[in-house]
Design a protein around this nucleic acid. Structure first.
Lengths: 131, 131
DNA sequence: AACTACATGTTAGGAAATATAACATATCAA
DNA sequence: TTGATATGTTATATTTCCTAACATGTAGTT
């Protein structure tokens, strides 16, 4: 199985994702509500997250900590997508498309100016059964 | 984070492992009872499995399908461990140790003679939310 | 044929996780 | 002050997972 597929495989329950990301369930659900992530669902409607989802959430957390709001993050993610596509099919894009992208990037830059940084650590979720 | 650590990280609930391995909860718990795997536990006592655990379970399933019993599988796993250590510290082992290993390998070979093969596929656990 | 051991199924009862929905609140900007 | 945004909190229902006990099918023994 390819690395990409593995990272996209929905395996983790929300409790694990909470630990991995240090986000509350409320936050995670809220971000889903706003389409920043779209975790899969089990048959019984439980959210199942992939490692890609976790990555996205970690990024959301970072961007939020930098003072960017939902709308801004959504834009960042969209931009990311565009760039991925652009670099994938290295075909040149039309001028108007490029201008549109640049415009968005400048808006982003503006938003980015109000920053503030903080950071937590991620090294607690590894416990083995004590025998 | 290293690849090894990631594979050893206990992330998955038993329900996921059931899907990934096509084993029942009863089976998985039984194998744990017999020390073939030792999944971590969450604070609330739920089993949390690593990808390594899943690998082990897939192997257990294969060996069982070949007619090998718990005791045999335990031996196989122990042998595996010995080989790993042996190849790690390439220091020579004492003759008695080597003889002991050979004896065990011969026993294994005997057991292995009563075989029977079957195989399932593993390509169902990937569902995305239909919007 | 009756016994036994092994691997697994099944059931019961309880504790914890998760879901949705509604309401509360802190902060910031207009 | 008001309004929007992001998050907390609470309530209620459903589902998962745990342990423990008992049941059962298959092989191998006696």
């Amino acid at each position: 199985m390819s690395r990409e597929l593995r990272r996209a495989m929905p395996l983790l329950p929300i409790s694990m994702v909470m630990q991995l990301t240090e986000l509350t369930a409320r936050q995670i659900r809220y971000y889903e509500e706003h389409k920043l992530i779209e975790p899969a669902r089990s048959e019984s409607n439980r959210r199942m997250f992939s490692l890609d989802d976790v990555d996205a959430l970690l990024e959301i957390r970072e961007l939020l900590e930098q003072g960017i709001n939902m709308a801004g993050i959504k834009k960042v993610f969209d931009l990311r997508k565009v760039n991925k596509i652009k670099s994938l099919n290295n075909m040149a894009m039309s001028d108007s498309e490029l201008r549109s992208i640049l415009r968005e990037e400048m808006q982003q830059a503006q938003i980015m100016q109000k920053t503030s940084i903080r950071q937590g650590d991620l090294s607690r979720f590894y416990q083995r059964k004590s025998e």
